[in-house]
């Protein structure tokens, strides 16, 4: 059975308010499958019973768990491959020519369990032009649980099988029990912090590269527009933004232009928009 209409509506409103992620009707199965473990842990007979209690008691900790459970976290190493090839072949070499401080700043804005920021750092190490450079990496996510996982950098055998070349595995990971752990040297390069994309960003300076992949798809148009506008304010004028393959700025925030980068594409702030940051 799937979740009832009332329970779905409550969860939908809760998630919308806390994360701006819109769960369209038809996503009942998703809500059901993500909340079953929480319902069981709480000793409820089903998800409806769990949500019914949640809606009367409004326990903040339980509500946070629900929001976290519905913040997607499907991820793999070098996800989609092409963006990372573009980083190594196009974006990083271009930055190496224009940055005098031998330092670049990267923000992974929805880092989930950490595969993306670590993949970016491994890519930087494979870029000859960045040899001897410092990569300052900020990785943020809405989910505290995910941040904790990312910070630990521990992955199961199944997780390291996903998209990670064997040469990279033996170079950047060490065996830990039945799983693997990211090398301490790599982990030490990442600063992890909780961040809700729909709230004003904290002071964090400007970034040369921002990864904001497969997260805008969960927001409604107004929120997408607002996020892209604020992302412009924390991206260096000649910086690069990566979105997911199914996402685009066109018709959302036209201050961006899409530029081909290898088999992938990146988004850059249009020349005429670079000087008049709102």
């Amino acid at each position: 059975m799937t979740i009832g209409h009332e329970a779905f509506t409550f969860v939908r409103e809760l998630v919308r308010a806390e994360s701006a992620i819109v769960l369209e009707p038809g996503k009942e199965y998703l809500v059901e499958s993500r909340l079953v473990p929480l319902a069981r842990q709480g000793g409820h007979k089903d998800v409806d019973a769990f949500v019914a209690e949640l809606s009367t008691r409004r326990n903040p900790a339980a509500m946070r768990l629900v929001v976290e459970a519905l913040t997607t976290n499907e991820t793999s190493w070098f996800r989609d491959t092409d963006p990372f090839t573009a980083l190594r072949q196009t974006v990083f070499p271009a930055l190496a020519k224009t940055r005098s401080k031998r330092e670049i700043r990267v923000w992974a804005a929805a880092c989930s369990s950490g595969q993306e920021p670590y993949s970016i750092l491994m890519t930087a190490q494979d870029t000859p032009e960045l040899s001897g450079w410092k990569v300052d990496m900020l990785a943020t996510d809405l989910s505290l649980e995910m941040l904790e996982r990312a910070r630990k950098g521990e992955y199961s055998q199944l997780e390291v099988n996903r998209g990670l070349p064997a040469t990279t595995l033996v170079r950047h990971f060490e065996r830990l029990g039945l799983g693997w752990r990211i090398s301490p040297a790599l982990a030490a390069q990442v600063q992890f912090r909780q961040l809700n994309l729909m709230r004003p960003f904290p002071a964090m300076g400007k970034f040369d590269v921002i990864f904001l992949r497969n997260v805008l798809i969960y927001f409604d148009l107004a929120t997408k527009r607002d996020i892209l506008r604020r992302v412009r304010q924390v991206l260096a004028p000649d910086g690069h933004l990566f979105l997911g393959a199914a996402e685009m700025t066109m018709g959302v925030d036209d201050a961006w232009e899409r530029v081909p980068a290898g088999r992938s594409s990146v988004y850059r702030i249009r020349e005429e928009q670079r000087t008049c940051v709102p």
Binding site: V160, N161, A166, V170
Partner: peptide, 30 residues
């Protein structure tokens, strides 16, 4: 799945290394 095993296989000429158990997606990604 030991690290030195993977290193040995790669040194002997294997291009990739997939550890059992794996999902269909993992093989396709390799």
């Amino acid at each position: 799945s030991e690290q030195d095993r993977i290193v040995r296989a790669l040194a002997a000429g294997a291009h990739e290394y997939l550890i059992k158990p794996f999902t269909g997606d993992a093989l396709v990604e390799k």
